[in-house]
């Protein structure tokens, strides 16, 4: 299970945190507040998604970030053909899923009555609604799904995407993780939820490239375990930022192992090689 047959390259990264937006650059989680930072330079929705009809906030975030991801890929190596949208998959990890929108729809029902919920809000109570908006906006026609595996849902999605590409089942995949909180509050005993959206463009790489590659991607489950190797606990942000950093910074050793163990017992690891 540890070996990927076809090299899998990370050809672009785009990360949005409370600290800002980083495209093909080392991200920063930000030090204050839980909400994503403002992004004045974000591609306007009319450019990134001309067909948009009342997209939800999570959809807007993902569409803008995915648009920036593909633009960065096109700019980074114009000699390498870009991925074919018809063969590009979307596989995102999320622990919270549509919890924020669920809360919004529930308030809607409570305030307006059980027969008067907003249909456009209800659509976004599916965790795949926002990624589907990315497919509509960018013309992607591969597979589409979300993965949930506790606090390492995002890293788990990257592992599964890497394995699909490594086996030749797919040519390209936009993967990563998204955790948005919305206007509800975490339990008083916990830190404010730090929002994050981190996207990675993976491509099967049969040609020499300037990009790092992924290997040794693996998942497992140890329910008795607590804590972990990296980013113990609810570690969505830390894990995704560690992966993004490993993909954009060539360290002294030519490989970095990114691994994490969630408090629910899920674990994931993969190796980034330069």
């Amino acid at each position: 299970m540890r070996v990927l047959n076809t090299p899998v390259a990370v050809t672009a990264t785009a990360v949005w945190t409370p600290g800002g937006v980083w495209v093909n650059a080392r991200p920063n989680a930000g030090s204050s507040g839980g909400a994503l930072a403002a992004w004045p330079e974000a591609p306007p929705l009319r450019v990134a998604h001309p067909k948009a009809r009342r997209p939800h906030r999570e959809a807007t975030v993902l569409v803008q970030l995915a648009h920036a991801l593909l633009m960065a890929r096109a700019a980074s190596d114009p000699t390498a053909p870009p991925p074919n949208p018809a063969q590009t998959d979307l596989l995102l990890g999320t622990a919270r899923g549509s919890a924020a929108t669920d809360g919004e729809f529930l308030r809607d029902l409570r305030e307006r009555g059980s027969g008067f919920g907003s249909p456009s809000t209800f659509v976004y109570t599916l965790s795949t609604a926002a990624p589907a908006e990315v497919a509509i906006a960018l013309g992607l026609r591969g597979s589409l799904a979300t993965i949930t595996a506790g606090g390492i849902s995002g890293l788990s999605a990257v592992v599964r995407a890497a394995r699909r590409l490594g086996r030749g089942e797919s040519r390209a995949c936009i993967t990563g993780g998204v955790e948005l909180a919305g206007p509800v509050h975490p339990p008083a005993s916990e830190e404010p939820l730090r929002e994050v959206a981190a996207l990675f463009l993976l491509e099967s790489s049969s040609f020499p490239s300037v990009w790092p590659t992924l290997s040794d991607a693996e998942l497992g489950f140890e329910p008795a375990a607590t804590g972990g190797d990296v980013g113990a606990g609810d570690c969505a942000t830390e894990t995704l930022l560690a992966l993004a950093t490993a993909c954009v910074e060539r360290g002294e050793s030519h490989q970095v192992e990114v691994k994490a163990h969630s408090r629910e017992g899920h674990w994931a690891r993969l190796r980034v090689q330069w």
């Binding site: 899923g97 599916l126 965790s127 795949t128 589409l144 799904a145 979300t146 993965i147 949930t148 595996a149 849902s153 788990s156 599964r160 998942l219 497992g220 489950f221 140890e222 017992g265 899920h266």
Partner: peptide, 12 residues
Amino acid sequence: GARGPVYTTAAA
């Protein structure tokens, strides 16, 4: 008793 990959897929 599963100790291999354990995850949930959502695709509507």
